[in-house]
């Protein structure tokens, strides 16, 4: 199986994502240029973190119209696996592939620090090897990570079990003190209704080796690999 990492002008976590797959997981991975319309046979597309198009207008708003995104949208709509990390999450909400919007952090500051995430659901593409309630230590680095949606739509996300990760404290308690940006319901990561598109603000690719302070992020990438290689039900995402 093969990962494809999209590079937009202003992406700055594309190499981190590439390295996590290539050098830590020893997987197959290729960079995909934003002007290309070819996904190069990738089984999983990663939209990496960064500041695509300088975050002009709104984070992700311009990247969403780049040539590669036409193919990514088609790929996602036909059940292809797409992971949007940080700016990638913002691009996916702008593209309408994930519900809601990522607003300015409620405290208006850029936050760059380790946080704890609680896995809310196991058995998905992205949490196939993470059991429910697992606490992951992963960094955040964003100014616009405040997840917002109308209350009725948030309720739908809860009912459909689309919330994969919530900000929590070290012991796994979901508290307002553990919420780094004002996200509603401490939402850190969600999937679409079909479960093949993930968006998360924290950076699992920056937490894949002990020297980086945590290896917990690798479990997300490993989950995707394991899902693709063995768990994938025939004919389904």
């Amino acid at each position: 199986m093969k990962f494809g990492v999209v590079t937009f002008p202003g992406s700055n976590c594309d190499y981190d994502a590439y390295a996590a797959v290539k050098h830590v997981m020893h997987g197959d991975v290729e960079f995909l240029w934003h002007k290309s319309e070819d996904l190069a046979g990738s089984d999983v597309i990663i939209l990496p973190g960064g500041f695509s198009y300088g975050d002009y207008l709104r984070s992700g708003a311009i990247a969403r119209f780049s040539p590669i995104m036409k193919q990514v949208i088609k790929f996602a709509e036909s059940g292809g696996i797409v992971m949007g990390i940080c700016n990638g999450f913002q691009v996916l909400t702008e593209a309408g592939l994930l519900p809601g919007a990522l607003m300015r952090n409620s405290h208006l500051r850029f936050s760059c620090k380790f946080v704890y995430l609680r896995a809310e659901r196991t058995g998905t593409v992205f949490t196939s090897s993470i059991s429910k309630g697992t606490i992951l230590k992963v960094p955040i680095a964003h100014g616009d990570g405040n997840y917002y949606h109308f209350e009725g739509d948030i309720r739908k996300l809860e009912e459909n079990d689309q919330i994969l990760f919530r900000y929590c404290d070290q012991s796994g308690q979901v508290t307002s003190e553990a919420n780094p940006n004002g996200s509603l319901h401490n939402i850190a990561g969600i999937v679409n209704a079909e479960g093949n598109v993930l968006g998360m603000m924290p950076h699992p690719e920056r937490a894949c080796e002990p020297i980086l302070g945590s290896e917990d992020g690798l479990r997300v990438f490993e989950s995707v690999r394991i899902w693709c290689e063995s768990l994938r039900p025939v004919g389904k995402v």
Binding site: L57, R58, A61, T93, A101, M103, Y148, H149
Partner: peptide, 8 residues
């Protein structure tokens, strides 16, 4: 499509 995000 671009200037405003109709969600918010």
């Amino acid at each position: 499509k671009l200037l405003a995000n109709p969600i918010v």
